[in-house]
Design a protein around this nucleic acid. Structure first.
Length: 241
DNA sequence: TCATTAAATTGTT
DNA sequence: AACAATTTAATGA
């Protein structure tokens, strides 16, 4: 059964393997790390579960240890707009956590996922005490800014193959999503939801990208062979390269 | 461990 | 949207 927030209802202590999938822990000094580990929680999210909802006060800074989430928002007409997917290694919500405001997006699990949460007070304590943590958050904000600008370009593209390629490149971003690696676990249906195309069209686009040698289509996922090709697909090559 | 079955995912129309 | 083919996961001997 889908729940409102798995971090409240299916909360537990993280396993060692799950901790290994949290990228910023390695940036902390021993004392900082100790405090973070004390407060860090994980929860199992089922498909459809809300990790957080628009308007709710910020309680956690969230991260994906395993699985796949989607970030979306509902407009005035009641239609849902999906902004991006969040694969393993991704952390989000630092903007609203910094300001202690309300969440500005809905975050829902697309598939069974393991979600981690750092309580907002601990988040602020780390900001006040840890240089390594500050570097991580700053780098995170900077990288995400670049991704949102790229996302605007994607929205304006009308070629489905290009939209799929660029969206995939974003999901394979090693800075924002270090847990992904060479293989992204995502079904073609899930990718279709994220990109806003039919599964058939996504299937066709993936076949084209595979023919270009940019990716390899695998059962239940995709292997990236040439990330630069994904990022640059559709761009005309100039003398400058 | 292996064989059988169910479920999930893919490829195609 | 529907269908068949393929792959994986689950089950039990």
């Amino acid at each position: 059964m889908a729940t409102e927030s798995p971090l409240y209802q299916r909360r537990r202590a993280p396993t060692a393997q799950e901790l290994a999938g949290i990228p910023w822990l390695a940036r902390l000094q021993p004392l900082e790390r100790e405090r973070a580990l004390d407060e860090l929680r994980v929860g199992d999210a089922l498909p459809g579960d809300y990790v957080c909802r628009v308007g709710r006060p910020v309680t956690y800074w969230f991260g994906v240890v395993d699985g796949l989430l989607k970030m979306s928002s509902d407009n005035a007409q009641g239609q849902t707009m999906t902004f991006t997917g969040v694969p393993p290694g991704g952390w989000f919500g630092e903007g609203t956590a910094l300001k202690r405001e309300a969440y500005r997006y809905n975050i829902q699990a697309l598939r069974r996922s393991v979600v981690a949460g750092l309580p907002i007070d601990t988040f602020h304590w780390l900001l006040d005490h840890s240089i390594g943590f500050n570097r991580f958050v700053m780098n995170q904000l900077n990288e995400r800014l670049g991704q949102f600008i790229a996302a605007r370009e994607i929205d304006r593209m009308n070629d489905p193959d290009l939209r799929v390629a660029r969206s995939l490149a974003a999901l394979f971003n090693p800075v924002l999503y270090p847990g992904v690696g060479q293989v992204l676990r995502i079904t073609q249906q899930e990718l279709a939801y994220l990109v806003g195309l039919s599964r058939q069209r996504v299937n066709e686009a993936l076949a084209a990208l595979a023919a270009q040698g940019a990716i390899r289509v695998e059962y239940g996922g995709l292997r990236v062979l040439d990330l630069q090709a994904l990022r640059a697909s559709g761009l005309t090559t100039t003398a400058a390269g």
